[in-house]
Computed example of a mutant assay.
Amino acid sequence: MTDLDDDKRHMFGKYQLKPNSGVNPPYSPAYPVEWGCALRTVEIMTRVAPSKLKTLLADTPFEIVNDRVAFRFMLSPGHSMAVHTGQMFDLMITVPVRYKDLFTETHIFMYCSDPMGICAGREVFGYTKKDAHYAFDERPDGSITGWVKRRGIPLADFSFTPDADAPIVRIVDGKEQPGGEIHVRRLPHPARLETAYADIAYRRTPLKYSAPLAGRATMTLHPCIYDPIADLEPEILGAHFMVSDVYGGGFEVEDRRLIERLTP
């Protein structure tokens, strides 16, 4: 794209690069500060043994709230960081946590279909993002089937069927739900197998989800030594489908904070 007024917008859709945000900044990655899209989410709520969650979050200062883990299969049509493919996909495997005055969530595993989405989320905010391929097939009756693979290796198969009689189980009980996402962001040492520095990053992007559509779900997790999500052995508690026409990032629309420096 050589013309900012090019109606094809091959790179970032309607969004433009801001000062210090791209081409070749004195840091990495070179990512677009602003982005936007719609969001279509199948959320499968599960229960996982607390000892497994404690192990996964042992090197964070976060307080685990309960034994629930949300498997969120998220399709982002029109994502401006994936204009070339028309959409982006994420699988967020998420637990609710508290840290100081924040009631929020952290992703113990996360997979993404787009290189720009991976580097921006992982390097900037400390997400656990890895590369993945996916299927997310919606049918006229509201049912959805899909799968997630990483480098040709199956990780998850899932299905969702609407059912008004099915229970809706959220990630915590009660009216107040956690908001935003918090992670320990780490930079590996260039000469040794250790962390050079670490800090805590928080963000809260705008979301206006529809009321959850109740349903029944199936989910099969495939054993993989490099991506041991099957080791969680989750028990499915419920499932629902939600849509948001508002989802995006940037300093003008989201809460982005560097909470605390941990190392050094």
Rank of each mutant, 00 (worst) to 15 (best):
H10S: 11
G13L: 01
G13W: 01
Y15E: 05
Y15L: 03
Q16S: 13
Q16T: 11
K18F: 00
N20G: 01
N20R: 01
S21W: 00
S21P: 00
S21Q: 04
G22K: 02
V23P: 09
V23I: 07
V23K: 07
V23D: 03
P25Y: 02
P25S: 04
P26N: 03
P26H: 01
Y27A: 00
Y27C: 03
S28E: 09
S28A: 05
P29Y: 02
A30R: 01
Y31L: 05
P32D: 02
V33S: 06
V33E: 13
E34C: 05
E34K: 11
E34R: 08
G36L: 04
G36N: 11
C37D: 01
C37V: 11
L39C: 13
L39P: 03
L39I: 15
R40I: 10
R40L: 03
R40T: 10
T41A: 15
V42G: 08
V42F: 07
E43F: 04
I44C: 09
M45N: 13
R47Y: 02
V48W: 01
V48K: 06
A49V: 06
P50R: 11
P50N: 08
P50S: 09
P50F: 08
S51W: 06
S51A: 15
K52Q: 12
K52F: 11
L53K: 04
L53G: 10
L53V: 14
K54E: 11
K54R: 14
T55L: 14
T55M: 14
T55F: 09
L57D: 00
L57N: 10
L57Y: 03
A58K: 12
D59Y: 13
D59Q: 14
D59I: 05
T60E: 12
T60Q: 05
P61K: 05
P61I: 12
P61Y: 01
P61Q: 12
F62C: 04
F62Q: 06
F62T: 02
E63W: 02
E63I: 11
E63T: 15
I64W: 09
I64N: 09
V65I: 14
N66F: 10
N66T: 08
D67T: 03
D67C: 06
V69T: 12
A70N: 13
A70H: 14
F71I: 05
R72G: 15
R72W: 10
R72L: 15
M74Q: 13
M74D: 15
M74G: 06
M74L: 14
M74R: 09
L75S: 15
S76A: 15
S76P: 03
P77T: 12
G78L: 13
G78D: 14
